[in-house]
Design a protein around this nucleic acid. Structure first.
Lengths: 224, 224
DNA sequence: CATCATATAATAGTAATACTATTATATTTG
DNA sequence: CAAATATAATAGTATTACTATTATATGATG
């Protein structure tokens, strides 16, 4: 898998960036260091000026890659979902049995992220933390409908739909496949957040807990 | 219920505000108009300066009630959760049967908000929209642990715990009562958001759909 | 190897934001 | 009526989120 992934590039909607960050060394440094910095200071305090100082480049040079930090967040989270989608498709591809397939899918999307050496400038573990802490902010905006129309959320939507289809294949009579799929994806981020900051509001404390919880939730819904 | 509620005040942690907005006419106008304005322009574009102009008062006067707009958001959302908690307790109080009680609770917290005439300066329908669109932003911050320690989220936590206890009363063997409770509350906000902006990611399209979805989700989990 | 294009860096500037501080003017209360 | 308190007006600051311009470095092509 590692070898194969090395030649794979996660395709991001071209309108999200001004210039493809994968196309230059500076671009890759922007991605690499922004992931570290957003984790350190949070998205609100993160600015292009500070990032410029950190990567020993200039604020205005970063603007040649991304219009603003919102677009950079969209880029980072799209990349994450694309990466997760790749893992999902790869891991479930050969499975014929719909129950097994769905089980594997839920495992993939709810498990704790491990680093992937295929993309050297991207720290997937920290990127997962960014998604947990900041993803909602990318769509809870007044511009969401326009940006959705412009295709900024296609990868996420495709991922939800893939899970929704697997749910449907397992039980075609179940009435809420899309809601269950979106609940699993969003809920997994939420339970992970609660684990770290509001532990009394969750029963997920160990690594595998969110996976067990969502497996139980999904399969009991689909079997009844 | 209406008559009784008229003498009820939703108690908000005193550290959230500088001066109690319920204590003056200006304070109530700040609450009333900020709800309208955040709905209109979104939390990001909302500023105390603009609110001051709108209520024909001064920016600096608003600062005498709230340190910043983040605190105002905490106030508004705490009020909402307090109001919902009151409805929950009131509606489920007399119910002895744990299944019925939980069913009622899920109905209350997932149903579409209707206006409550008891609090004339607060539009609960719009406040519910603010909670859907902005609540996450109030805790997805670098200050969350400190603010949690300071008790800024107590009402929300109490609400989740109430539901969690009802789940536990219905099925003491179920392993994830807190996770299920937080999934229902957060998930309900999320499904409502998807309904309005990403309809392909949800099966909740009509008014009662989130309730039906979460009732099915909860009870099939708890019966298996 | 010269030149031409492009990428990057440096500098400066702007409007808006998120405040703080000070003073003036109402309004309430004791 | 005086004193305290609430509100309003004004001004000021550091930071943010950009845009614009110019300078410099690198690299590709003829």
């Amino acid at each position: 898998m590692e070898q194969l992934l090395k030649s794979v590039k996660i395709a991001i909607n071209e309108n999200i960036y001004v210039k493809d960050p994968e196309s230059s060394d500076l671009g890759k440094r922007i991605i690499e260091e922004s992931i570290l910095m957003i984790n350190e200071v949070g998205f609100e305090s993160f600015t292009f000026k500070k990032l410029g100082i950190r990567i020993k480049s200039n604020e205005s040079s970063i603007y040649r890659y991304f219009e603003n930090k919102h677009k950079l967040l969209l880029y980072l989270t799209s990349w994450y979902w694309g990466w997760l989608e790749y893992q999902l498709v790869f891991a479930t591809n050969g499975i014929q049995n719909p129950g097994e397939k769905l089980e594997k899918a839920i495992e993939i999307v709810t498990k704790t992220t491990v680093e992937d050496s295929a993309f050297s400038h991207i720290n997937e573990i920290l990127l997962n933390k960014i998604v947990i802490n900041e993803y909602s902010k990318s769509y809870l905006t007044k511009e969401v409908d326009k940006e959705n129309k412009d295709g900024y959320f296609v990868i996420y939507k495709r991922l939800v739909n893939r899970i929704s289809e697997m749910i449907n294949n397992f039980n075609p009579d179940y009435k809420y496949p899309s809601s269950l799929a979106s609940t699993i994806l969003e809920g997994s981020l939420h339970q992970n957040f609660l684990k770290d900051h509001f532990s009394s509001l969750t029963d997920c404390h160990a690594k595998e807990d969110p996976t067990h919880y969502f497996l139980h939730l999904a399969f009991s819904s689909l079997k009844s």
